[in-house]
Design a protein around this nucleic acid. Structure first.
Lengths: 239, 239
DNA sequence: TAGTGGTCTAGACCACGAA
DNA sequence: TCGTGGTCTAGACCACTAC
């Protein structure tokens, strides 16, 4: 309709314009990790388009890991990723500290229960502890750990201090040394209960890691399922 | 307004209803891998809500990896994932065949160029081949490979057959044996050019793998960047 | 309590794909 | 050519957060 649109320069869509604008602000450090973005309605005015368009662009930035959102609180610039090596014995606390993060752990639940499904297939024993922990970096929840440990190998585990290093506890109190591990890693999206714990929106992309850990006798003594915020982790593997 | 809404049973939102419905159809194999979902407008009528609501739910199913979309073609049920082990020497063709896929490779480009950025930092040599390949499983593009190889180590590489196993070529023609590898894995979203090659929408979640590969003298001879559709791969790691 | 994000309605026009 | 998905407008009401 408008003669301007007949020129063959590609039309830049409002969402693209906004994407580029915010991306630039973040990469130039005008907006720093942890900063809150302007509200959706402010962005709406700033870029002259509707909220749906704004949200499309924000969701795309979030998919790339540049920003994330907390439900009903707003959109924030993503902090740097924690670098993990799944082939080494994992040490969340150690890795986090050595990379300049302040880690913390919250015990969500510890139950004695009957193993089912994959946990039973792997452990070959029904009597397990099911421990659920939430781990944070600089106060931001980034990881849900759901661990299944053999009651036989770790008696009275529920009486121990569970919001610290479990690897240390296994070694020092139970004289159990993990000498082998298998990890299965894939991409997924968070269910409601996971999203709630991690303080993000259901459907947020996540990395799921399923681990089986073996003791010196090569027996599977632990089976874990972890959910990481997809923008909070980078895996390093050597061979 | 309506007295029914005053009851304290939780209100099930239209998007949730649709999510559950489609999820069930897929898990029960009513819809099989590769099948196309009904059009957005059909779903709109079926669930009695607007297209935006429908698309919200579809996007969430796609984030979980259950479905994916091809631009302007529709939404499809995701095929099973390819299981890869990044610590073994990678063999896309071998892994794919042994898991019942029909793999194929398309050479996108092969350029002699000057290495920059990360590629130069790693290889410590400007003269490289930059090879870009697209790899498919059962005809579905799942992986973009962007490989940087030292011209010094692989003279006349551009004259070779590049749409087959490069590992074989390196070993048989150049007598170069890869004996070590580092991989850095993270989650991201696809840019426009990547999305176009992979025949998906820009912004689709992806797994990015950066590899450095070493020869017997422990020299970095290859530096790759790979983009996988996030729903097409599962990584297995042992230690 | 004011403003935020979460969710939704009811449309519209366009470019592209399949036929 | 017709129907599809891609993108967008212009609102609305709600639950929750921050103050």
């Amino acid at each position: 309709m408008d003669t301007l649109e007949v020129t063959d320069q590609p039309v830049i869509r409002p969402s693209t314009l906004m994407l580029r604008g915010l991306e630039k602000s973040i990469r130039s450090r005008e907006l720093c990790p942890g900063d809150r973005l302007p509200s959706e309605r402010e962005l709406q005015e700033q870029y002259g388009c509707t909220r749906i368009t704004i949200r499309d662009a924000l969701l795309r930035l979030a998919a790339s890991g540049l920003i994330y959102r907390q439900p009903r609180k707003g959109w924030f610039v993503t902090p740097p990723r924690l670098i993990c090596n799944p082939t080494r014995r994992i040490h969340f606390l150690h890795d986090a500290r050595s990379q300049g993060f302040v880690p913390s752990t919250e015990l969500i639940s510890c139950k004695q229960e009957q193993a089912e499904g994959a946990a039973y297939d792997v452990l070959q024993d029904r009597d397990v502890y099911n421990i659920c922990r939430l781990r944070k970096l600089n106060g931001r929840p980034v990881l849900i750990e759901n661990m299944h440990l053999l009651q036989h190998s770790f008696p009275d585990l529920h009486l121990q201090q569970l919001d610290n290093s479990l690897t240390d506890l296994m070694r020092n109190h139970y004289q159990t040394y993990i000498t082998g591990e298998e990890a299965r890693i894939c991409s997924t999206a968070l269910e409601d209960w996971q999203a709630e714990l991690l303080q993000v929106t259901p459907g947020t992309p996540a990395i799921r890691i399923e681990r089986t850990r073996f003791d010196r006798t090569n027996r599977a003594v632990e089976f874990d399922i972890e959910y990481w915020l997809h923008d909070a982790i980078e895996l390093h593997v050597r061979s």
